[in-house]
Each structure stands twice: as structure tokens, then as C-alpha cells.
């Protein structure tokens, strides 16, 4: 196998792959940072409605520099804009949308995902100032809770594991993981491999995964646009 660093998908390619699964009209919450990139890759002809925890549905693009209105921001505290169809609401309504099962998809980042669907993404367990924000709420209630992540850590350790070692964000909450090497579903306490990049073999993929990858029918080829590499 070539070095994983040479064959893995870029973050943009992972975000592109996740965007392909978002249906027209879906209500979607994208976590701060990497997951926000998913909004750029909506397939032609489909329009998702994005939710941001601080109380906005269906917001517009970021304003030009100097045009920011600081009453109009997203959960990452970045300036956004309104557009026809935008709605504002208070925080209790916003999280009723989350926990009440009204969101179709929530997409988050991860430090670790366990085969049980447990997610660790809010604390590295080390000192410093702990901060959780809306992560623990977002993993409950959306019909699909997807994770975007590199398949391995910066030091090459697995991020898909048998059991999380870091503090949990939620128990049994993740339904699908889009990694830099594969698309993996979580079903009945197992990782089920759906797609992998062609450059890696099944054995090689298993070797960098911390829990057994189960097969359920054919494994699809994970191919993302080259220009996003």
C-alpha cells in the first residue's frame, strides 16, 4: 500500500461525499469547522435547509468583508446573511428542533467513533478550559447523525474504535461515518463497510481500523472529484 497520506481523500472530498447523501428539502445542521464545508457541495437541483443552533433556519452566504451585521451570525459566530425564506427563533425553539426529531441530518466532526455509535468529539480529556456548546444536544434527535473524519489520527492511530477512550459526547448516536478512506455505517453495534477508496485493499483498511469492519453485500468504490483533492 502507498502511504495513506498520499491516497486518502482531502477534507473537501470527504465533505463532497457526505453532501451526496443529503436529499432535496432536508433540514440539516452542520457542525462548526470541517462539517460546514458540506454546504458547498450540494448536488445540482437539490436544496437543503440549514439550521444553526443560535436561532436561524435557511440562512444565506457569508457577507462581503465590511458588510457584516453582527446581529446576524451562525453558531461559529461568523457573520451570515438572510435570504427569502430565512427564519429566526430563540434558543429553546432551536434545540426543540434538534432534540424533537425535526432535523433530518446532523453532521459533526470526531476524535473517536465506536462501533456502538458512541461519539467522542468535545474533550481531549486533558486540562484547560472544558467547552461543550451544542455538541451533546446535536447528537440526539436528528434522524441521521453523520460524522466526517480522517480515518486515522495524526499519529496514525485508529479513530474508528471498539470503544471510545476519550470523554463521550453521546452514546449510540452515530449512524454513518465518512472518512478519508471509506464510508462506514453503524448497525447493531457493528461497523458495516459501504464504500472504500479503490487504492486501498480490504485488509489494509482493516489494519488501520480499530474494530472489525463487517461486510453486507458489495463494497462500493468511493471516488470523489479529483479537483477537490
Amino acid at each position: 500500500m502507498s502511504d495513506i497520506q498520499d491516497i486518502k481523500l482531502s477534507n473537501a472530498q470527504i465533505a463532497w461525499r457526505a453532501a451526496q447523501d443529503i436529499e432535496d428539502g432536508a433540514y440539516v445542521n452542520l457542525g462548526i469547522g470541517f462539517p460546514e464545508m458540506v454546504a458547498r457541495f450540494q448536488p445540482e437541483g437539490r436544496q437543503a435547509i440549514f439550521h444553526t443552533e443560535n436561532g436561524v433556519l435557511d440562512f444565506g452566504k457569508a457577507p462581503e468583508k465590511g458588510e457584516e451585521d453582527w446581529d446576524c451570525i451562525n453558531a461559529g459566530k461568523k457573520a451570515i446573511t438572510i435570504k427569502p425564506g430565512t427564519a429566526f427563533f430563540h434558543h429553546a425553539d432551536s434545540f426543540a428542533m434538534v432534540r424533537g426529531g425535526h432535523l433530518d441530518v446532523a453532521i459533526l466532526g470526531a476524535y473517536e467513533v465506536a462501533q456502538s455509535g458512541d461519539l467522542a468529539n468535545w474533550s481531549t480529556g486533558k486540562g484547560g478550559v472544558p467547552a461543550v456548546g451544542g455538541a451533546m444536544d446535536l447528537v440526539h434527535g436528528a434522524k441521521r447523525v453523520a460524522v466526517l473524519t480522517d480515518h486515522v489520527t495524526k499519529t496514525g492511530g485508529p479513530k474508528l474504535v471498539e470503544a471510545c477512550t476519550l470523554p463521550l459526547t453521546g452514546v449510540g448516536c452515530v449512524t454513518r461515518v465518512y472518512t478519508s478512506l471509506a464510508v462506514v455505517d453503524i448497525e447493531d453495534g457493528h461497523f458495516v463497510l459501504r464504500e472504500k477508496i479503490p487504492a486501498i485493499s480490504l485488509d489494509e483498511l482493516q489494519a488501520v481500523t480499530g474494530a472489525r469492519l463487517h461486510l453486507d453485500g458489495a463494497v462500493g468504490e468511493l471516488i470523489a472529484p479529483e479537483e477537490l483533492a
Binding site: 443552533e53 430563540h90 434558543h91 429553546a92 432551536s94 434545540f95 434538534v98 432534540r99 472544558p130 467547552a131 461543550v132 456548546g133 451544542g134 455538541a135 451533546m136 444536544d137 440526539h140 434527535g141
Partner: peptide, 25 residues
Amino acid sequence: LVPQGTLAERIRAGGAGIPAFYTPT
């Protein structure tokens, strides 16, 4: 430290006279 949605709902409950509630969060 309180999860954001729990923080909002605890405040809402305080204002609404609901002493406690159950959440999956």
C-alpha cells in the same frame, strides 16, 4: 458547564415553573 440546549431548556423551565425535565442530551 451545561450543554447548550440543556442550558436553554433549563432557563425556559425556570421561567415556565417546571422544576425539572428529562432530556436525552
